[in-house]
Design a protein around this nucleic acid. Structure first.
Lengths: 140, 140
DNA sequence: TAATAATTTGGAATATATGCAAATAATTTG
DNA sequence: CAAATTATTTGCATATATTCCAAATTATTA
Protein backbone atom coordinates (compact mmCIF):
# COMPACT_ATOMS: atom_id res chain seq x y z
CA UNK A 1 0.00 0.00 0.00
CA UNK A 2 1.06 3.49 -0.85
CA UNK A 3 0.76 6.59 1.24
CA UNK A 4 -1.27 8.83 -1.02
CA UNK A 5 -1.67 12.48 -0.06
CA UNK A 6 -3.42 13.33 -3.30
CA UNK A 7 -1.13 16.26 -3.96
CA UNK A 8 1.74 14.37 -5.56
CA UNK A 9 0.95 15.07 -9.18
CA UNK A 10 0.17 18.11 -11.31
CA UNK A 11 -3.25 18.44 -12.97
CA UNK A 12 -1.94 17.29 -16.33
CA UNK A 13 -0.21 14.26 -14.92
CA UNK A 14 -3.39 13.31 -13.10
CA UNK A 15 -5.13 13.40 -16.47
CA UNK A 16 -2.52 11.13 -17.94
CA UNK A 17 -2.93 8.52 -15.22
CA UNK A 18 -6.71 8.61 -15.39
CA UNK A 19 -6.57 8.09 -19.13
CA UNK A 20 -4.12 5.23 -18.81
CA UNK A 21 -6.40 3.52 -16.31
CA UNK A 22 -9.37 3.96 -18.62
CA UNK A 23 -7.55 2.58 -21.64
CA UNK A 24 -5.91 -0.23 -19.75
CA UNK A 25 -2.88 -2.28 -20.62
CA UNK A 26 -0.37 -0.99 -23.16
CA UNK A 27 -1.22 2.47 -24.44
CA UNK A 28 0.49 4.34 -27.26
CA UNK A 29 1.88 7.77 -26.47
CA UNK A 30 0.09 8.90 -29.61
CA UNK A 31 -3.26 7.82 -28.20
CA UNK A 32 -2.51 9.97 -25.19
CA UNK A 33 -1.56 12.94 -27.33
CA UNK A 34 -4.79 12.58 -29.31
CA UNK A 35 -6.94 12.30 -26.19
CA UNK A 36 -5.30 15.18 -24.35
CA UNK A 37 -4.85 17.38 -27.41
CA UNK A 38 -1.11 17.80 -27.16
CA UNK A 39 1.75 17.16 -29.53
CA UNK A 40 3.04 13.56 -29.49
CA UNK A 41 6.39 14.86 -28.34
CA UNK A 42 4.69 16.42 -25.35
CA UNK A 43 3.01 13.21 -24.27
CA UNK A 44 6.26 11.32 -24.69
CA UNK A 45 8.03 13.81 -22.45
CA UNK A 46 5.36 13.75 -19.79
CA UNK A 47 5.26 9.97 -19.86
CA UNK A 48 9.01 9.94 -19.34
CA UNK A 49 8.54 12.10 -16.26
CA UNK A 50 5.89 9.73 -14.95
CA UNK A 51 8.15 6.82 -15.73
CA UNK A 52 11.06 8.31 -13.79
CA UNK A 53 8.73 8.84 -10.85
CA UNK A 54 7.59 5.22 -11.00
CA UNK A 55 3.98 5.67 -12.01
CA UNK A 56 4.29 4.05 -15.44
CA UNK A 57 6.52 1.74 -17.43
CA UNK A 58 7.43 3.05 -20.83
CA UNK A 59 8.76 0.79 -23.54
CA UNK A 60 9.99 3.22 -26.18
CA UNK A 61 8.15 2.94 -29.51
CA UNK A 62 5.92 0.30 -27.95
CA UNK A 63 3.70 1.84 -25.36
CA UNK A 64 3.01 2.75 -21.76
CA UNK A 65 1.37 0.97 -18.90
CA UNK A 66 0.64 1.82 -15.30
CA UNK A 67 2.86 0.35 -12.64
CA UNK A 68 1.15 -1.10 -9.62
CA UNK A 69 1.72 2.14 -7.78
CA UNK A 70 0.52 4.11 -10.78
CA UNK A 71 -2.66 2.09 -10.83
CA UNK A 72 -3.32 2.78 -7.16
CA UNK A 73 -2.93 6.46 -7.75
CA UNK A 74 -5.01 6.40 -10.91
CA UNK A 75 -7.84 4.65 -9.10
CA UNK A 76 -7.72 7.25 -6.36
CA UNK A 77 -7.72 10.03 -8.94
CA UNK A 78 -10.81 8.63 -10.65
CA UNK A 79 -12.58 8.24 -7.31
CA UNK A 80 -11.63 11.72 -6.27
CA UNK A 81 -13.00 13.10 -9.50
CA UNK A 82 -16.25 11.21 -9.06
CA UNK A 83 -16.75 12.14 -5.44
CA UNK A 84 -16.11 15.82 -6.06
CA UNK A 85 -18.40 15.79 -9.07
CA UNK A 86 -21.13 14.19 -7.02
CA UNK A 87 -20.65 16.80 -4.34
CA UNK A 88 -20.97 19.68 -6.80
CA UNK A 89 -24.04 18.08 -8.35
CA UNK A 90 -25.63 18.21 -4.90
CA UNK A 91 -25.27 21.97 -5.10
CA UNK A 92 -27.08 22.46 -8.35
CA UNK A 93 -24.42 21.90 -10.97
CA UNK A 94 -25.33 19.73 -13.93
CA UNK A 95 -23.34 16.54 -14.44
CA UNK A 96 -21.39 18.10 -17.25
CA UNK A 97 -20.68 21.32 -15.42
CA UNK A 98 -19.69 19.46 -12.27
CA UNK A 99 -17.32 17.28 -14.27
CA UNK A 100 -15.74 20.23 -16.07
CA UNK A 101 -15.42 22.23 -12.89
CA UNK A 102 -13.87 19.39 -10.93
CA UNK A 103 -11.41 18.64 -13.69
CA UNK A 104 -9.94 22.06 -13.13
CA UNK A 105 -9.26 21.75 -9.42
CA UNK A 106 -9.28 18.10 -8.43
CA UNK A 107 -5.49 17.80 -8.40
CA UNK A 108 -5.40 20.13 -5.40
CA UNK A 109 -7.79 18.26 -3.14
CA UNK A 110 -6.16 15.98 -0.59
CA UNK A 111 -6.95 12.34 -0.02
CA UNK A 112 -7.81 13.13 3.59
CA UNK A 113 -10.47 15.57 2.46
CA UNK A 114 -11.85 13.09 -0.06
CA UNK A 115 -12.04 10.36 2.57
CA UNK A 116 -13.92 12.71 4.88
CA UNK A 117 -16.32 13.85 2.18
CA UNK A 118 -16.83 10.29 1.02
CA UNK A 119 -17.68 9.22 4.55
CA UNK A 120 -20.12 12.10 5.02
CA UNK A 121 -21.87 11.01 1.84
CA UNK A 122 -22.20 7.46 3.13
CA UNK A 123 -19.68 6.06 0.68
CA UNK A 124 -21.77 6.34 -2.43
CA UNK A 125 -21.07 3.89 -5.22
CA UNK A 126 -22.36 5.92 -8.11
CA UNK A 127 -21.52 9.46 -9.14
CA UNK A 128 -22.54 11.65 -12.04
CA UNK A 129 -19.32 10.76 -13.86
CA UNK A 130 -19.03 7.08 -13.18
CA UNK A 131 -18.85 4.51 -10.46
CA UNK A 132 -17.01 4.95 -7.18
CA UNK A 133 -14.94 2.27 -5.55
CA UNK A 134 -13.88 2.38 -1.95
CA UNK A 135 -10.86 0.15 -1.81
CA UNK A 136 -8.63 3.14 -1.13
CA UNK A 137 -10.92 5.03 1.20
CA UNK A 138 -9.36 5.08 4.63
CA UNK A 139 -12.63 5.79 6.37
CA UNK A 140 -14.63 3.02 4.81
CA UNK B 1 -19.19 46.19 -13.35
CA UNK B 2 -16.65 43.63 -14.38
CA UNK B 3 -17.16 40.32 -16.10
CA UNK B 4 -15.56 37.93 -13.64
CA UNK B 5 -15.03 34.33 -14.69
CA UNK B 6 -13.10 33.52 -11.54
CA UNK B 7 -10.25 31.98 -13.50
CA UNK B 8 -8.34 35.14 -14.31
CA UNK B 9 -5.70 34.94 -11.62
CA UNK B 10 -3.26 32.35 -10.36
CA UNK B 11 -3.56 30.99 -6.81
CA UNK B 12 -0.80 33.23 -5.50
CA UNK B 13 -2.26 36.35 -7.05
CA UNK B 14 -5.62 35.53 -5.56
CA UNK B 15 -3.89 35.40 -2.18
CA UNK B 16 -2.35 38.79 -2.79
CA UNK B 17 -5.69 40.40 -3.60
CA UNK B 18 -7.44 38.82 -0.64
CA UNK B 19 -4.71 40.07 1.66
CA UNK B 20 -4.87 43.55 0.20
CA UNK B 21 -8.61 43.64 0.76
CA UNK B 22 -8.19 42.51 4.35
CA UNK B 23 -5.48 45.06 5.11
CA UNK B 24 -7.23 47.87 3.27
CA UNK B 25 -5.84 51.13 1.96
CA UNK B 26 -2.11 51.47 1.33
CA UNK B 27 -0.17 48.28 2.04
CA UNK B 28 3.60 47.88 2.07
CA UNK B 29 5.06 45.22 -0.19
CA UNK B 30 7.02 44.10 2.86
CA UNK B 31 3.81 43.44 4.77
CA UNK B 32 2.74 41.24 1.90
CA UNK B 33 6.03 39.38 1.88
CA UNK B 34 5.78 38.80 5.62
CA UNK B 35 2.19 37.57 5.41
CA UNK B 36 2.78 35.30 2.45
CA UNK B 37 6.22 34.11 3.50
CA UNK B 38 8.09 35.20 0.41
CA UNK B 39 11.10 37.40 -0.18
CA UNK B 40 10.28 41.11 -0.42
CA UNK B 41 11.61 41.08 -3.95
CA UNK B 42 9.08 38.42 -4.82
CA UNK B 43 6.13 40.41 -3.54
CA UNK B 44 7.35 43.47 -5.39
CA UNK B 45 7.49 41.54 -8.64
CA UNK B 46 4.09 39.99 -8.19
CA UNK B 47 2.61 43.34 -7.27
CA UNK B 48 4.08 44.79 -10.45
CA UNK B 49 2.34 42.07 -12.44
CA UNK B 50 -0.94 42.84 -10.72
CA UNK B 51 -0.35 46.52 -11.35
CA UNK B 52 0.21 45.99 -15.07
CA UNK B 53 -3.01 43.99 -15.21
CA UNK B 54 -4.91 46.77 -13.51
CA UNK B 55 -5.77 45.12 -10.22
CA UNK B 56 -3.65 47.35 -8.01
CA UNK B 57 -1.93 50.70 -7.99
CA UNK B 58 1.65 50.59 -6.87
CA UNK B 59 3.50 53.67 -5.74
CA UNK B 60 7.12 52.49 -5.58
CA UNK B 61 8.64 52.64 -2.11
CA UNK B 62 5.27 53.79 -0.79
CA UNK B 63 2.77 51.01 -1.02
CA UNK B 64 0.02 49.23 -2.89
CA UNK B 65 -3.72 49.59 -3.02
CA UNK B 66 -6.50 47.83 -4.86
CA UNK B 67 -8.00 49.53 -7.88
CA UNK B 68 -11.78 49.53 -8.11
CA UNK B 69 -11.58 46.50 -10.36
CA UNK B 70 -9.10 44.84 -8.03
CA UNK B 71 -11.48 45.35 -5.15
CA UNK B 72 -14.36 43.74 -7.04
CA UNK B 73 -12.21 40.73 -7.75
CA UNK B 74 -10.88 40.57 -4.21
CA UNK B 75 -14.40 40.62 -2.81
CA UNK B 76 -15.39 37.79 -5.12
CA UNK B 77 -12.29 35.85 -4.11
CA UNK B 78 -13.12 36.17 -0.44
CA UNK B 79 -16.71 35.12 -1.05
CA UNK B 80 -15.61 32.20 -3.15
CA UNK B 81 -13.29 31.07 -0.41
CA UNK B 82 -16.03 31.34 2.18
CA UNK B 83 -18.67 29.56 0.15
CA UNK B 84 -16.37 26.69 -0.72
CA UNK B 85 -15.23 26.40 2.89
CA UNK B 86 -18.82 26.28 4.04
CA UNK B 87 -19.55 23.59 1.48
CA UNK B 88 -16.68 21.41 2.64
CA UNK B 89 -17.67 21.91 6.25
CA UNK B 90 -21.04 20.43 5.34
CA UNK B 91 -19.18 17.27 4.39
CA UNK B 92 -17.43 16.80 7.67
CA UNK B 93 -14.31 18.91 7.35
CA UNK B 94 -13.40 21.09 10.32
CA UNK B 95 -13.32 24.82 9.78
CA UNK B 96 -9.56 24.81 9.69
CA UNK B 97 -9.28 21.87 7.35
CA UNK B 98 -11.94 23.27 5.05
CA UNK B 99 -10.12 26.57 4.94
CA UNK B 100 -6.76 24.98 4.22
CA UNK B 101 -8.19 22.68 1.61
CA UNK B 102 -10.06 25.42 -0.18
CA UNK B 103 -7.02 27.66 -0.22
CA UNK B 104 -5.32 25.09 -2.39
CA UNK B 105 -7.93 24.89 -5.11
CA UNK B 106 -10.20 27.92 -4.93
CA UNK B 107 -8.44 29.71 -7.77
CA UNK B 108 -9.73 27.06 -10.17
CA UNK B 109 -13.41 27.31 -9.35
CA UNK B 110 -15.45 29.47 -11.70
CA UNK B 111 -17.77 32.26 -10.67
CA UNK B 112 -20.63 30.48 -12.41
CA UNK B 113 -20.11 27.45 -10.20
CA UNK B 114 -19.90 29.61 -7.09
CA UNK B 115 -23.11 31.41 -7.98
CA UNK B 116 -24.87 28.09 -8.45
CA UNK B 117 -23.55 26.65 -5.20
CA UNK B 118 -24.37 29.85 -3.37
CA UNK B 119 -27.93 29.72 -4.67
CA UNK B 120 -28.34 26.06 -3.71
CA UNK B 121 -27.24 26.99 -0.20
CA UNK B 122 -29.83 29.74 0.03
CA UNK B 123 -27.28 32.52 -0.12
CA UNK B 124 -25.84 32.07 3.34
CA UNK B 125 -24.37 35.10 5.01
CA UNK B 126 -22.00 33.37 7.36
CA UNK B 127 -19.33 30.76 6.63
CA UNK B 128 -16.74 29.00 8.72
CA UNK B 129 -14.10 31.50 7.59
CA UNK B 130 -15.98 34.74 7.70
CA UNK B 131 -19.02 36.55 6.43
CA UNK B 132 -20.39 36.23 2.92
CA UNK B 133 -21.67 39.16 0.90
CA UNK B 134 -23.83 38.72 -2.14
CA UNK B 135 -23.30 41.92 -4.06
CA UNK B 136 -21.49 40.04 -6.81
CA UNK B 137 -23.66 36.93 -6.86
CA UNK B 138 -25.47 36.82 -10.17
CA UNK B 139 -28.17 34.49 -8.90
CA UNK B 140 -29.11 36.46 -5.83
C1' DT C 1 23.45 65.13 6.77
C1' DA C 2 25.02 60.58 7.64
C1' DA C 3 23.79 56.12 8.88
C1' DT C 4 20.29 52.73 8.78
C1' DA C 5 16.33 50.49 7.11
C1' DA C 6 13.07 49.48 3.50
C1' DT C 7 12.17 48.59 -1.20
C1' DT C 8 13.17 47.66 -5.91
C1' DT C 9 15.96 45.88 -9.86
C1' DG C 10 18.69 42.62 -12.25
C1' DG C 11 20.11 38.16 -12.71
C1' DA C 12 19.31 33.46 -12.24
C1' DA C 13 16.96 29.14 -11.00
C1' DT C 14 13.08 25.65 -10.76
C1' DA C 15 8.79 23.44 -12.18
C1' DT C 16 5.24 22.73 -15.50
C1' DA C 17 3.79 22.60 -19.99
C1' DT C 18 4.17 23.18 -24.81
C1' DG C 19 5.47 22.64 -30.09
C1' DC C 20 8.51 22.23 -34.14
C1' DA C 21 11.95 19.94 -36.76
C1' DA C 22 15.09 16.29 -37.10
C1' DA C 23 16.35 11.67 -35.99
C1' DT C 24 15.12 7.08 -35.06
C1' DA C 25 12.31 2.88 -34.90
C1' DA C 26 8.41 0.18 -36.43
C1' DT C 27 5.25 -1.10 -39.88
C1' DT C 28 3.43 -1.59 -44.36
C1' DT C 29 3.75 -2.43 -49.12
C1' DG C 30 5.29 -3.74 -53.48
C1' DC D 1 12.72 -8.76 -48.00
C1' DA D 2 13.97 -4.12 -49.09
C1' DA D 3 11.96 0.38 -49.73
C1' DA D 4 8.62 3.60 -48.50
C1' DT D 5 5.61 5.20 -45.12
C1' DT D 6 4.12 5.97 -40.56
C1' DA D 7 4.83 6.35 -35.65
C1' DT D 8 7.59 7.80 -31.96
C1' DT D 9 11.28 10.04 -29.70
C1' DT D 10 15.02 13.56 -29.06
C1' DG D 11 16.88 18.01 -29.20
C1' DC D 12 16.13 22.49 -29.23
C1' DA D 13 13.32 26.52 -27.98
C1' DT D 14 9.51 28.99 -25.72
C1' DA D 15 6.11 30.59 -22.15
C1' DT D 16 4.20 31.17 -17.54
C1' DA D 17 4.50 31.11 -12.66
C1' DT D 18 7.14 31.42 -8.81
C1' DT D 19 11.11 32.05 -6.21
C1' DC D 20 15.58 34.02 -4.02
C1' DC D 21 20.03 36.48 -3.71
C1' DA D 22 22.87 40.40 -4.27
C1' DA D 23 23.25 45.04 -5.68
C1' DA D 24 21.19 49.44 -6.33
C1' DT D 25 17.97 52.81 -5.01
C1' DT D 26 14.87 55.39 -1.99
C1' DA D 27 13.05 56.55 2.47
C1' DT D 28 13.60 57.16 7.28
C1' DT D 29 15.96 57.98 11.57
C1' DA D 30 19.30 59.62 14.46
Amino acid sequence: MQEITGLELSPKKVEYLKFLLKKGDLVKTTDISTELNVDPSTSTKTINDLSESGYVDHIPYRGVRLTEIGREFAEFFVNRHNILSLMLSHYGLSSDDACIEVSRFEAFVSKDAIDTICGAMGHPTVSVCGKIKHSSCNLH
